[in-house]
Design a binder for these strands. Structure first.
Lengths: 195, 195
DNA sequence: TGTTCAATTGAGCACTTGCTCAACAACTTC
DNA sequence: GAAGTTGTTGAGCAAGTGCTCAATTGAACA
């Protein structure tokens, strides 16, 4: 039996925790779900992490970071004129809704978990900055004008979170298509592009 | 010891559950918190409610209904020209943030609780309709023009939820003042009133 | 007064949770 | 080889959970 070195095991546990949290939600996921998934003893987690709370927070950080990295990567190989549509597609998450579910869950749970709150706060700020950078670049390239208010990025991020919550409540409340068009309109409005 | 008749007891339990949920959050609140608060035996809840899940959902319904009723009442004794500012104040909840916290919590929890989902969905739709009615009345009174898109109410509600989530994450993410001015701008924009 | 029955109790059950810790296994170093 | 370090185990604990149910209370009615 080849043993796994410390740092690798740590990462492995974080990824397993991430998977479990994605499936069951932050409050419903248990340490034993993670150890069972990894096929390891139930005590192992506490050799690598102070507490389940800490591991949970670490798993959410992992999720957010890899997602932002992925967006950044997609942006890099797409010409700016297509960024608006790309952003809309990204934010409305045609592919997998689970990540959005986890994000909303984390924002909510953060009110009762200071450790998680730290991670979510940092992620939110990072996320706003990505949006700001995108807007700046679009304006530089002559696509639209600079939004009137500096709070444009914050407004967009809040709108996306709110829309996601509504979409999860079902079609009667809001369809994905409606959410998508609301978001597209808002971006174009912010950039001074009348739709 | 005067005994309490069935229907009154039911209402009393719902209100106690509401208070507990407001304090501890939906996932953290326990049946025993409710019985302890009422000073009754731990088995009493199950005489009036099929399960804790049911009681929780009922408590959220109670919360939402009384809040919408209260808003309606405030609107009734305020002249329409002041409605915009009243709505902004209401949505950003200067008074007590707990109700918003519970609402966001319920929207999140609804993904894992079908009974709660039913209540939250109905509440969301009701909430959108209140906003639609307000807009209609404002337009009738000559205050602003009818919003271009019929999704205006949905967009407003989503924006409010998103802003609330951001504000709860702390001042670094979004200050209440910023949220308030974003919301005010959006309402005026929807009504065609350039700020 | 005795009868009836809904309201109420709380010990207790079965289950889950995060976490501990003595024991052991597998590498590294000497 | 021996010694030391690190990784790993899993039974077990204390604290919690929703829920059940036989037993009791109290009010209304005869």
């Amino acid at each position: 039996m080849t043993r796994i070195s410390g740092a690798d095991r740590r990462q492995q546990i974080i990824e397993a925790a991430h998977a479990v949290i994605l499936e069951k939600g932050l409050a419903q996921a248990a340490t034993r779900d993670v150890t069972r998934r990894l096929g390891v003893g139930s005590g192992l987690l506490h050799h690598y992490f102070k507490s389940w709370q800490t591991l949970r927070a670490e798993a959410v950080r992992h999720s957010v970071e890899s997602e932002i990295a992925q967006l950044q990567q997609t942006l890099d190989r797409t010409p700016p004129p297509q960024w608006i549509e790309l952003l809309v597609d990204w934010m409305t998450a045609d592919g997998d809704l689970h990540h959005w579910s986890l994000w909303l869950n984390a924002v909510d749970e953060a009110r009762r978990d200071t450790e998680l709150a730290e991670v979510v706060r940092a992620a939110y700020i990072q996320w706003q900055q990505v949006v700001i950078r995108i807007i700046d670049r679009l304006v530089e390239d002559g696509i639209g004008h600079r939004p009137g208010t500096p709070a444009a990025a914050g407004r967009l991020c809040a709108l996306v979170d709110g829309l996601a919550g509504a979409v999860f409540l079902g079609e009667q409340v809001m369809t994905p298509q409606t959410a998508k068009s609301i978001l597209r309109d808002q971006i174009k409005l912010d950039l001074g592009l009348s739709s």
